[in-house]
């Protein structure tokens, strides 16, 4: 569906981000009119804390979706890194293990999809199950302590602003630099557009795919660290809802699931939209169970508007 009035053209590789921005603005204005608390300092602070982990996961997810893949193991990676960082071992070693495990999972996902030719959903679904199994073996019930350095990075104020804001700013800066300003970003868009054409243009498709999955796992691991610190616990299944939420945010942000079209700013708008909606429904006292129905419906509507040629998966 073309919406030229909103500046959505089929030639831009940014996807449908302007439509998302419009909806975000409408929802924000609607909420600030209908509730008094929405614009209050406390609620804005809450919003930042709620949106930050989602933004981290969704930016990583977008990188994979742009290559034409999908990573449903992000939730498991979040859980594993939250578990590892709270293990009773040297904090530096724990951090190294978090990074190493995310690297391994990313490489396995990337190779499974790129080299073995397994469908992304099946490949990442199986790594997701394995990783969740490992995380649950390490910590069957939530517990453990977050290292001091990480504790300082969440829930405090820097220059009078919540420190979570800086996590978000850093994430979005990395996302923008990677997708819109780097050679790798261009290559990621290219293989999402057409793998065979990208290969003919001299892009190392396998290498790019593996890198995309590694970046996605790294973002998810960062979200795991953030969540572990926020709830002061290592919980193996803390990340599972984030799989669907990240996919929803990416879809709402106008990133095309066939790959090749989408932007980091679009993902930001998608995350803001999801965050505003769940925050707004909380303020309006909507049942949390209804909220999951609403976000599912939103995803259906968002996806129905992104029409494409291919049929099926």
């Amino acid at each position: 569906m073309k919406l030229p009035a909103l500046g959505i053209s089929t030639t831009s590789r940014k996807g449908g981000q302007n439509l998302s921005l419009l909806i975000v603005l409408i929802v924000a204005i609607g909420l600030s009119v209908s509730t008094q608390e929405f614009l209050s300092g406390e609620n804005t602070h809450n919003l930042v804390v709620q949106i930050t982990p989602l933004l981290l996961v969704a930016l990583g997810q977008a990188v994979v979706v742009l290559t034409g893949g999908l990573d449903v193991s992000v939730g498991a990676v979040i859980g594993l890194s939250a578990v590892i960082i709270t293990l009773p071992i040297d904090p530096n070693l724990a951090l190294a293990l978090v990074v190493a495990s995310a690297l391994v999972i990313g490489v396995v996902n990337g190779l499974a999809v790129g080299a073995l030719g397994i469908h992304p959903i099946i490949a990442t679904l199986s790594t997701s199950t394995i990783v969740t199994g490992i995380a649950l073996t390490l910590r069957p019930t939530p517990g453990g302590d977050v290292p001091l350095w990480l504790d300082r990075l969440v829930g405090t104020d820097v220059f009078g602003l919540p420190v979570e804001l800086f996590w978000s700013l850093a994430a979005i800066a990395i996302g923008l630099a990677l997708l819109q300003r780097s050679r790798l970003g261009l290559q990621i868009h290219a293989i999402g557009g057409s793998q065979s054409n990208a290969r003919l243009a001299g892009i190392k498709v396998l290498r790019t795919q593996v890198l995309a999955y590694v970046i996605c796992s790294m973002f998810a691991a960062a979200a795991g660290l953030f969540l572990a610190s926020r709830i002061s616990d290592g919980d193996a299944i803390v990340g599972l809802p984030f799989t669907l939420m990240s996919i929803t945010a990416v879809a709402l942000g106008g990133v095309q699931f066939t790959g090749g079209l989408g932007s980091a700013t679009g993902v930001l708008f998608g995350c803001l939209l999801l965050g505003f909606l769940s925050n707004g429904m909380n303020l309006l006292n909507v049942s949390p169970f209804l909220q999951s129905i609403v976000s599912g419906l939103l995803l259906l509507i968002a996806i129905a508007f992104t029409r494409r040629k291919t049929i099926g998966i």
Binding site: L244, F257, F289, S292, G296, L299, L300, R307, T310, I311
Partner: peptide, 24 residues
């Protein structure tokens, strides 16, 4: 089939809606 939306996203969303519906 009709709207040509991605099957992954549609059915994932449907799963979330059904779970939310039952919980509600």
């Amino acid at each position: 089939a009709r709207l040509r939306a991605s099957a992954v996203v549609v059915t994932l969303a449907m799963g979330a809606i059904l779970l939310g519906l039952v919980l509600f």
